[in-house]
Computed example of a mutant assay.
Amino acid sequence: MSEGDRDLLVAAAWLHDIGYAPDLRDTGFHPLDGARYLETLGAPSRLVRLVAHHSGAVYEAEQRGLTAELAVYDREDSPVLDALIYADMTTGPAGQSFVFDSRIDEILERYEPGSEVHNAISKARPYLGAAVGRTLARLGDQPT
């Protein structure tokens, strides 16, 4: 990964949940609200797109009826997006480390069955797991 991609990944990791900030809430869907806010600040388009699509956001957008709104931001399938998903799917809300399956279980326990997040994470699990697996393989921690 290039130095520029590493810097972009760090910025996206720091900013991916900015859309949870109450003052930025518009749709109530934090990836979209965060991307829109960053766009108003003139943030680099790749950063905006990574925030918009972090951690399988398209699955939750479907649940919330916001697919068209999210589609304004192209999703890149790249090692950078995979690494961002890895970071989010192996770190808990208080910064604790998780293995992927435990992190997914933690999310599913926090959100009621039938909720948008619970449904989306359940559907996204294979996609998210594949991104985590590719990142681990790139790090040399397991075969592809």
Rank of each mutant, 00 (worst) to 15 (best):
Y37L: 04
L38V: 10
P113M: 06
Q96R: 04
H53Q: 04
A21L: 13
D82N: 03
P93E: 08
L70V: 04
M89R: 14
I85M: 05
I107P: 06
P22T: 12
L81P: 03
T40R: 14
D5F: 04
T144C: 02
A124Y: 09
I104F: 02
L47N: 07
S122H: 11
R138C: 06
L24H: 08
A124T: 05
D141P: 01
L9Y: 11
L128I: 07
A124D: 12
Y86G: 00
E39F: 00
A87C: 10
L139G: 01
Q142L: 14
I107S: 01
M89S: 04
S122Y: 05
R110T: 13
L15H: 04
R125F: 03
E76I: 02
R46E: 15
L50P: 05
L24S: 08
V51R: 06
Y37Q: 00
D26I: 11
V58I: 12
D7Q: 11
V58K: 11
Y86T: 01
T40Q: 13
Y86D: 04
V80L: 00
D33W: 12
Y73R: 08
Q142E: 15
A137R: 03
G42W: 02
V132K: 09
I121K: 11
L32P: 06
S102R: 15
A68D: 15
A61M: 08
R138M: 14
L81Y: 07
A94Q: 08
I18H: 06
R25L: 06
Y86R: 05
G95A: 02
Q96A: 02
G95I: 01
G95K: 01
F29W: 09
S45A: 07
E112G: 06
